Structure formats: C-alpha cells, structure tokens
Amino acid sequence: MVVLALIKGGWLAVVVGTNVFLADFTAAFGKYLVVFRVRPESEGGELCWDFLPAGPRSQRIAEVLTCIALCFALGVGSWTYVVLSRREPLQRHVAYLMQAYKTECSVFEVERLVRKMLLTLVVAVLPAPRC
C-alpha cells in the first residue's frame, strides 16, 4: 500500500487498502477474543483465553477492542471523507466504486465496507465448531 501511495497517490492507497485488506486486518484483532470453555462451569470449567496476549486480561481485552474500534473509525471515516468530497468528474480512484450510484446513494459503499468488516469479525470471534 505504501508503494501504491507513492506511485499513484494516497487516496488510491486508502481506497484499495480499506476495500481489500481492512476487513481481514480487523478480524485478526478479533481472533484474540476467541474464548473456549473445556469443561462445564458446574465442574469448575473456566474460560480459556488461549489467544489473548500475556498480561492483565481486562487490559488486553480493552486494547483489542480499542484496536477494533480504531479500524472501524479509520475505515468508515476515510471512506466517508472520500465519498462526501466527491468532485466532478469523479476521481479515478473512486470512479469504479461510485460511478454506478446516484449522487444521493454514493454512501452505499461505506455501508458495504462496514457490513464486510462486521461479517469477517464475527466469523473470526465466533469460530464454527468442528465435528
């Protein structure tokens, strides 16, 4: 993304980076929040936070949640800025994404980004059990 930013411009790198990599990057933080209970709670089974980094659990959870919130804020904020600063003719780095929309519907790409990030995050945090 740095090379793309240097060659073609920063906003193209933002568009491509958020659209292609941000959902998986956010989900990578979500993997730290996977919790297992090996035995039932009635038998003394405790929650196992196997993927959480070492340190005070509540502090690490807060750090992970803060990173996830920052990913959403930066992704949605940058996309909203790109969409709302729409200039005619469309800038090349957003033309292929927004050209098909009416002007009043151009924020739809922001909704798609949020949906993609949420779905990827849920899949990472709630892994399906294997049979």
Rank of each mutant, 00 (worst) to 15 (best):
K8L: 14
K8V: 12
G9T: 05
G9V: 03
G9K: 01
G10F: 10
L12N: 08
L12P: 07
A13L: 11
V15H: 03
V15D: 01
V16A: 08
G17R: 01
G17F: 04
N19P: 05
V20E: 05
T26C: 03
A27W: 01
A27Y: 01
F29G: 00
G30N: 00
K31S: 00
K31G: 02
K31E: 00
K31D: 00
Y32F: 07
Y32H: 03
L33W: 04
R37L: 11
R37I: 09
R37Q: 10
V38Y: 11
V38C: 14
P40L: 13
E41T: 04
S42V: 11
E43P: 06
G44A: 14
G45Y: 03
L47T: 14
C48S: 10
C48V: 12
C48F: 08
W49T: 13
D50L: 10
D50E: 13
F51C: 04
L52E: 05
A54C: 15
A54M: 14
P56F: 10
P56W: 08
R57D: 08
Q59A: 07
R60N: 08
R60W: 06
A62K: 07
A62S: 10
L65A: 08
T66Q: 07
T66K: 04
C67Y: 08
C67D: 09
C67T: 14
A69I: 11
L70R: 13
L70S: 14
C71R: 00
A73Q: 04
V76H: 01
G77P: 00
G77F: 01
S78N: 04
W79C: 02
W79D: 00
T80N: 03
T80R: 03
Y81S: 11
Y81D: 07
V82R: 00
V82D: 00
L84P: 04
L84D: 11
R87H: 14
R87G: 12
E88S: 12
L90G: 01
R92V: 13
V94L: 09
Y96M: 13
Y96F: 15
Y96D: 11
A100P: 06
A100I: 14
A100M: 12
A100G: 06
K102E: 08
K102G: 06
T103M: 11
T103L: 12
E104I: 11
E104V: 12
C105T: 14
C105F: 12
V107C: 08
V107P: 01
V107H: 03
F108T: 07
F108E: 03
E109Q: 15
E109D: 14
E109G: 04
V110Q: 04
E111T: 15
R112T: 06
L113Y: 04
R115S: 14
K116R: 10
M117W: 07
L118P: 05
L118S: 09
